[in-house]
Computed example of a mutant assay.
Amino acid sequence: MRWKLEPAEVTWTAVRAQGAGGQNVNKVSSAVHLRFDVPASSLPDELKAQLLACADQRITQDGVVVIKAQSHRTQELNLQDAMQRLHALIAQAAYVPKARKATKPTRASQKRRVEGKKRAGVTKALRGKVDW
């Protein structure tokens, strides 16, 4: 399934980061809140349904994906990090595992299995009580 994320559908705002960092954290808005409205997006309908069905805490009841990135010191790197996380979330929802094709074991492998079981049975029979 091919999909492309339109940059106009993603909105972001710069906010102050939390945690340690001193004066830089208190003065500079380097953290990024990224918002992506899934129902209003141009993604295929199947992908929208799969994305909304994900049990992810970043997806709100209204179907808006909210990602907060604050691990980097600059706004640009945090925005790139948030976009990468959004792409990873969508790619995870779009992933469809291959269907498993059931196969029969070969006759030789069946024979090897039975012979191994027989050998194990003989070994276990020898562990029994010895009758003098």
Rank of each mutant, 00 (worst) to 15 (best):
W12T: 14
R35M: 08
N24F: 12
V130W: 07
T106H: 02
M1R: 10
A125V: 10
A88F: 01
V66I: 13
G63K: 03
K117N: 08
V10S: 07
V65M: 00
K117M: 08
K98C: 02
L89Q: 02
Q84I: 03
R112W: 00
H87V: 15
T13Q: 15
G19Q: 07
A91S: 15
W132D: 13
P39M: 05
S109W: 10
L126W: 13
S71R: 14
E76G: 08
Q23F: 03
K101E: 11
D45V: 15
L52K: 10
I59C: 05
A94T: 04
Q23L: 05
G116M: 05
P7M: 01
S29N: 14
V10L: 07
A49K: 12
V64N: 09
R2A: 10
A82Q: 02
T13R: 14
T106Y: 01
A8W: 07
G21A: 03
W12M: 14
K4W: 04
A88E: 11
E115T: 09
L79C: 04
L5Q: 03
A69H: 05
A91C: 06
G19K: 12
L79E: 02
L52W: 06
A8P: 05
S109A: 01
A99Y: 09
I67G: 00
G22E: 01
K48W: 04
R113I: 03
T13N: 15
A99L: 06
Q61P: 05
V15H: 09
R127T: 14
G128V: 01
F36I: 08
S42L: 11
A8L: 09
G22F: 05
V28F: 09
H87M: 15
S30K: 08
A55R: 14
G21Q: 04
A53W: 02
V96I: 15
G128C: 05
V32I: 14
L52S: 05
R35W: 02
P39Q: 05
R16C: 00
L47F: 06
L126C: 10
E46F: 09
Q92Y: 04
C54W: 08
E115P: 01
A91R: 09
V64S: 01
Q92P: 01
E46W: 10
A82I: 03
R107N: 11
R35H: 11
E46D: 15
D62G: 09
E9C: 02
V64K: 07
T60C: 01
V66G: 06
R35C: 09
D45A: 15
A40E: 10
K27W: 10
R35L: 08
M1P: 00
R35Y: 04
N26R: 14
